[in-house]
């Protein structure tokens, strides 16, 4: 029994600080974000990222393989793989808006689309011949990238939390 659980239960019993309505609304809406038949791509540690946006990823620590924040600033590349597909993404918050650059590999086939999803807004792009894509103007927060391939199951990255 953690002390945080005691505190949470005390507040619930007292009726203080109830869950805000928008948090509940977002929770109800999250169900629509499932991808039936889709494959979830797991994160893979990368120690020498090629960098979809920049030549190096200054926030990536080769010693620990830690990634998740960029202590020196700048985007950090994350790699996800599943079903023979690799999705590299570099999310960054610029001017309060979320930008996501990335690359799918192997190079995309005809009709492939990359969808960058947040809780409320999704943007779809056709990747370049080399598999690169970029999306901007999204709200910071949780983001996931889905690769749609005709005749194959969609592959989505795990949801990733990105704040400035």
């Amino acid at each position: 029994m953690s002390e945080e659980y005691l505190l949470a239960a005390l507040r619930m019993a007292a009726g203080v600080d109830p869950v805000p309505g928008r948090v509940s609304a977002d929770a109800r809406a999250a169900f629509a974000l499932r991808l039936p038949g889709g494959v979830i791509a797991a994160p893979v540690r990368v120690s020498a990222p090629p960098g979809a946006r920049s030549a190096t990823a200054p926030g990536t620590s080769p010693e620990t393989g830690t990634y998740g924040t960029a202590p020196e600033g700048g985007p950090v590349m994350r790699r996800f793989t599943a079903d023979g597909l690799t999705i590299d993404i570099e999310p960054a918050v610029v001017g309060g808006r979320l930008e996501v650059a990335g690359q799918v590999s192997p190079p995309p086939g005809p009709g492939w689309e990359v969808e960058v999803r947040t809780a409320h807004i999704s943007k779809t792009r056709a990747p370049s011949e080399s598999g690169h894509f970029a999306v901007s103007g999204l709200p910071p927060g949780w983001v996931s990238v889905v690769c749609h391939r005709p005749g194959l199951p969609p592959v989505s990255t795990r949801w990733l939390h990105v704040r400035a």
Binding site: V19, P20, R22, V23, D26, A27, A30, F31, L33, R34, I40, A119, G141, W142, S144, S156, R158, W159, H161, R163
Partner: peptide, 16 residues
């Protein structure tokens, strides 16, 4: 806190 709660629901969507 809103991000943490939403994150848990999104993990649930992934893990159904």
């Amino acid at each position: 806190a809103a991000d943490a709660v939403q994150g848990a629901w999104l993990r649930m969507v992934e893990s159904l």
